[in-house]
Simulated assay, not measured.
Amino acid sequence: MTEQPFRPREKLIERQKYFQSIHKHTYLKGPMDKITSVAIPIALAASSLYLIGRGIYNMSHGIGKKE
């Protein structure tokens, strides 16, 4: 018993040629890779820097202390 492939062989060869012809870094070759490899880490870094800055500001001014 043989399994059917996930994609037809022609599509696979076509995609291999496409990815091998691109001269970018490996992690940026796909169409949605800029979102997962660039945008999400930048957003996480920016939000963490904002929260750290807000925490330092609140500590230095004594805002939000529990009684």
Rank of each mutant, 00 (worst) to 15 (best):
K11H: 05
D33K: 07
K65Y: 01
I40H: 03
K66N: 05
I22A: 07
I63R: 00
F19A: 06
K11L: 15
T36M: 10
M32F: 07
N58R: 00
K66C: 01
Q16D: 09
K24R: 03
Y50V: 13
I52S: 11
H23F: 08
E14C: 03
G62T: 03
K34G: 15
A39P: 00
D33S: 15
K65Q: 05
L12N: 09
E14V: 06
I63P: 01
H25N: 09
K65V: 04
L28A: 14
F6Y: 05
D33F: 08
D33L: 04
I35V: 14
R54T: 08
Y18E: 14
F19V: 01
I56P: 04
I35K: 04
R15Y: 10
P31Q: 08
E67Y: 11
L44Y: 02
Y50D: 07
R9N: 11
T26I: 12
H61I: 02
M32W: 04
M59Y: 09
G53I: 06
K29C: 03
L51G: 10
P41T: 03
L49Y: 12
I35A: 13
Q20F: 00
V38T: 12
M32K: 04
R54N: 07
A46E: 02
G53C: 05
N58T: 02
T26A: 13
G30T: 11
N58P: 00
K24M: 00
L44I: 12
T36E: 06
M32R: 06
I63C: 00
S21K: 05
M59G: 10
G53V: 03
I63Y: 01
G62V: 02
L51I: 12
T36G: 12
R9K: 10
E67D: 13
M1E: 09
